[in-house]
């Protein structure tokens, strides 16, 4: 799958560095213990700036799913029809991820199914997190 390659920035670098080590981490608020993804400069719950990172289980469930058949992104259009699912994280279901669900053919996705994180290779050889049905 030719994933479009994410470009880390100052805020996201620790996240992508962890992904290269096949670890899934999320932002953690030191003040209120809240978890969040994608990373942001402040805690969405208490507005604190003091955020660190926490390893999470990498287990989740499919919240919903569609199939891309005419994407605005020509790089991904090569893979159409392509699953595009939203996966919630079991550690905190308020966190969700986009997922292509490699290994599951399009139109055969069961909403609610259990998934686990997988680390797939991008065209430049870097790793990216995706999710597989278990």
């Amino acid at each position: 799958m030719p994933y479009i390659v994410p470009v880390p920035d100052e805020l996201s670098k620790p996240f992508w560095d962890a992904v290269q080590e096949k670890r899934l981490i999320v932002q953690h608020c030191v003040a209120c213990n809240s978890l969040q993804y994608p990373p942001r400069p402040r805690c969405l719950d208490c507005n604190a700036e003091a955020m660190d990172w926490k390893d999470v289980s990498g287990k989740g469930h499919i919240l919903t799913c569609g199939v891309l058949e005419d994407s605005h992104l020509p790089v991904r259009a090569a893979d159409q029809p392509l699953n595009l699912a939203v996966v919630t994280l079991d550690d905190d279901p308020r966190i969700n991820y986009y997922a292509n669900l490699p290994g599951t053919p399009p139109f055969q996705v069961t909403v609610g199914a259990a998934v686990e994180v997988t680390f797939e290779e991008c065209p430049d050889g870097s790793l990216i997190h995706d999710w597989r049905v278990i």
Binding site: I4, V7, P8, P38, L73, R76, D79, N100
Partner: peptide, 11 residues
């Protein structure tokens, strides 16, 4: 911001 969605085709 697109690093959190475009990689999976989620434009």
């Amino acid at each position: 911001a697109s690093q959190w969605n475009n990689p999976w085709g989620a434009n």
